[in-house]
Computed example of a mutant assay.
Amino acid sequence: MLDSPDLIKEALWLALGSELGIRPAATGSLYFVDFENRIVLHPYGDRGMDVIAMRREALSDLYRSRDSWLLEHDMARMKTLFEEA
């Protein structure tokens, strides 16, 4: 269980290292799952991360506080989902 920020940071570096040319590295995909809040994070290299949730409310704060990080190609869909609320 990764309940420490230091362990999470190490796991991220291992997972992203192979794509970024950093060693040591691990192959495969990494998913962080918060079962209580029903959120899944999937970092995929220096390009970003997918954030998936079972409830729109779980993502609303991220949408508003990290809007400058959001990818433009998904912006129309995100505006439809989050700006109606």
Rank of each mutant, 00 (worst) to 15 (best):
S65K: 02
I52F: 10
H42A: 14
R47E: 08
M49D: 11
M75E: 08
D50K: 12
W69T: 01
R38D: 14
R38C: 12
L71H: 04
R77Y: 03
Y44C: 08
L81C: 08
L81N: 06
D34K: 06
A76M: 14
V40T: 10
I39A: 08
S68N: 08
V40H: 02
W69A: 01
Y63W: 10
W69S: 05
L41P: 00
L81M: 13
G28R: 13
D34A: 02
F35G: 12
H73Q: 05
D74P: 07
R55H: 09
D46L: 05
L30P: 05
V40R: 00
R55L: 04
V51F: 08
Y44Q: 11
R55M: 11
M78A: 11
T80H: 03
L62R: 02
S60N: 06
D67C: 05
A53C: 15
S29M: 15
E72N: 03
T80F: 02
A58H: 04
G48M: 02
S60M: 04
D61M: 01
L59Y: 01
G45H: 10
Y63C: 07
D46Q: 13
T80D: 09
R38G: 11
L81G: 09
L59K: 06
Y31A: 14
K79L: 09
D74Q: 01
L71I: 04
A58R: 00
Y31R: 15
D34F: 04
G28V: 11
M78C: 09
F32T: 07
V33H: 13
R64M: 11
K79M: 03
M49S: 14
G48H: 05
D34H: 02
H73T: 01
A53V: 14
T80K: 12
E36D: 14
S29F: 13
T80L: 06
K79C: 06
A53N: 11
M78E: 14
L62V: 03
S65I: 00
S29P: 08
R77Q: 11
H73C: 10
D61Y: 04
H42T: 14
W69L: 04
W69P: 01
E72F: 01
S29N: 14
G45M: 05
R56F: 05
D67N: 10
M54E: 15
G48T: 00
K79Q: 12
L59N: 03
D46H: 12
R56C: 00
D61R: 02
Y44E: 03
M78P: 11
R64K: 08
D61V: 01
H73A: 08
D34N: 07
E57F: 04
D50V: 02
V33C: 05
L59F: 05
M54P: 09
D50Y: 08
D50C: 07
L70Y: 00
M49R: 07
F82H: 06
L70D: 06
I39T: 11
S29L: 13
S65Q: 12
T80Y: 07
F35E: 15
S60A: 14
R38L: 06
R47S: 12
L71V: 02
L81T: 08
S65C: 03
F32S: 04
W69D: 10
R38Q: 14
D46W: 06
A58K: 00
D61E: 14
H73E: 08
F32L: 11
Y31L: 13
I39D: 12
S65Y: 01
D61T: 09
R55P: 04
R56G: 00
Y31I: 15
L71W: 00
M75N: 04
D34P: 04
G48V: 01
W69H: 01
S29Y: 15
